[in-house]
Amino acid sequence: MIVRILGEGQYTVADDHLDKLNQLDAQVQRAADAEDEERFAVALRALLDAVRTLGTPLPDQTLEPSELVLPEGDMGLAQVRALLSDEGLIPG
Results as ranks from 00 to 15, higher is better:
residue 19 D to P: 11
residue 53 T to F: 03
residue 22 N to P: 02
residue 63 L to Y: 06
residue 61 Q to C: 04
residue 85 S to T: 14
residue 65 P to C: 06
residue 33 D to V: 11
residue 84 L to V: 08
residue 1 M to N: 06
residue 2 I to F: 04
residue 27 Q to T: 10
residue 87 E to C: 05
residue 62 T to N: 06
residue 31 A to M: 02
residue 39 R to A: 12
residue 20 K to Y: 05
residue 11 Y to S: 09
residue 38 E to N: 11
residue 74 D to P: 03
residue 14 A to C: 05
residue 62 T to G: 03
residue 59 P to W: 03
residue 29 Q to K: 15
residue 8 E to C: 13
residue 45 R to A: 08
residue 9 G to Q: 13
residue 62 T to R: 14
residue 58 L to M: 06
residue 10 Q to T: 07
residue 12 T to R: 06
residue 80 V to Q: 05
residue 80 V to E: 01
residue 4 R to N: 10
residue 3 V to Y: 01
residue 5 I to W: 00
residue 14 A to L: 07
residue 39 R to I: 03
residue 49 D to Q: 13
residue 33 D to G: 15
residue 89 L to M: 08
residue 2 I to N: 11
residue 69 V to I: 12
residue 31 A to R: 02
residue 47 L to M: 06
residue 75 M to N: 05
residue 75 M to V: 05
residue 76 G to I: 03
residue 17 H to A: 14
residue 61 Q to H: 07
residue 13 V to P: 00
residue 70 L to W: 05
residue 76 G to E: 02
residue 1 M to I: 09
residue 5 I to G: 00
residue 76 G to L: 05
residue 43 A to M: 08
residue 7 G to R: 13
residue 72 E to R: 15
residue 68 L to D: 01
residue 34 A to Q: 13
residue 21 L to T: 04
residue 56 T to F: 04
residue 82 A to T: 11
residue 83 L to V: 04
residue 72 E to I: 07
residue 61 Q to M: 08
residue 29 Q to D: 06
residue 12 T to L: 14
residue 77 L to M: 07
residue 89 L to N: 05
residue 2 I to V: 15
residue 60 D to L: 12
residue 44 L to K: 12
residue 9 G to A: 12
residue 32 A to D: 00
residue 24 L to I: 14
residue 82 A to G: 04
residue 28 V to D: 04
residue 27 Q to W: 08
residue 28 V to C: 11
residue 64 E to P: 04
residue 7 G to Y: 11
